[in-house]
Nucleic acid binder design. Structure first.
Lengths: 124, 124
DNA sequence: ATTAGTAGTATACTAAAGGTTAGTGGTATT
DNA sequence: AATACCACTAACCTTTAGTATACTACTAAT
C-alpha cells in the first residue's frame, strides 16, 4: 500500500526495503531497547533510575541491553571516580538518528491505543 | 532527580511516551510482522509468494504471523472459491497508518548499514 | 503417470529472551 | 550497629520464538 498503483517496484527494490527494515529491527528491535533510549532521553541516567522508569525490566535484562546499546554506539557509560562512584549512561549523538523512528512509533502507538479504546478497530 | 535545563518533561509525559512505544512494539514488533507487511505492499499476496519474498521465514511462522496480522486488522484473507481456489492476503486501509513507521525504519536501516560499511561507527 | 505447485498443519525439537531469587562489595543513612 | 541504596552478576528456570521435516488434499503441467 505504500507503493501500490503507478509503478510496480522492482524485485531488487523490494529486497532492499526488506533488508533495510530487517537491519533496523536487528539493532533496535526487541522489547526494551527503544524504551531504554526514551528513558535516557527523558533525563534518567543511572542504572536503578532507568530500571524504575522502564517498568517491568529486570536488572539482568537491563544490564544486557545497556551493553548492547553501548556496543551499537547509542550510549556511553561514564564513571565518576570520586567517592561515591557514580555511573551514568548517556545518549550519543548517533542515538539522535533514531528520532524519526521514535517519533513515528510513539505517534502510532498513541493513535492505535485510541482506536482500540473507542472500539473503532473491532468493526474492520 | 536532577532535571535538565529548559523544560523538563513531566513524569507523566515520560510514562506516556514509554507506554506508546511499548504499545506499538507489542503489535508490530518482532522479527517478521513489518517485513511481511512490506512484502504485501510490494505486491506479493499469496502464501508461498510471501514466503519466498520474506527470506528465512518458515511456513509455520508465516502462518502464525498472518493470523496475528489479521487479528490486528492489518490484513484480510480473501478466498476465491472458483477452481482452483486462490487465497490472497491483502493489506487493509488501517495498515497504511504504519507508513511513517515503515519509512523511518527503512531509511534508518539503510543509513545504519552505510555507516557500518564505511566504518564510520567503530570510531565513536 | 509423475512431478510440481498451492496453502497450509502436525510434530518435535533447539535457541533466544526473559523472569526470579539471591548475593556481592561498596557507600550512606539512621 | 543495622539498614538501605547503588550497580550489578550468577544460577536457575520458564516462556516465547523459531527451525526442520514430514505430511495432507487438491490442481496443473509434462
Amino acid at each position: 500500500m505504500i507503493r501500490k498503483s503507478i509503478q510496480p517496484p522492482s524485485k531488487e527494490q523490494c529486497t532492499a526495503n526488506l533488508t533495510a527494515v530487517g537491519d533496523a529491527l536487528y539493532v533496535v528491535g526487541g522489547k526494551w531497547k527503544l524504551r531504554i533510549i526514551i528513558a535516557l532521553s527523558e533525563g534518567n541516567k543511572r542504572f536503578n533510575e532507568i530500571q524504575r522508569t522502564v517498568t517491568g525490566i529486570s536488572a539482568r535484562v537491563l544490564s544486557n541491553e545497556l551493553k548492547q546499546l553501548e556496543q551499537n554506539s547509542f550510549i556511553t557509560r561514564k564513571v565518576q571516580t570520586e567517592t561515591p562512584v557514580i555511573i551514568e549512561y548517556e545518549l550519543t549523538e548517533y542515538s539522535q538518528t533514531l528520532e524519526k523512528v521514535l517519533n513515528s512509533l510513539r505517534e502510532w502507538g498513541m493513535m492505535h491505543r485510541e482506536k482500540i479504546k473507542t472500539g473503532k478497530l473491532s468493526g474492520l
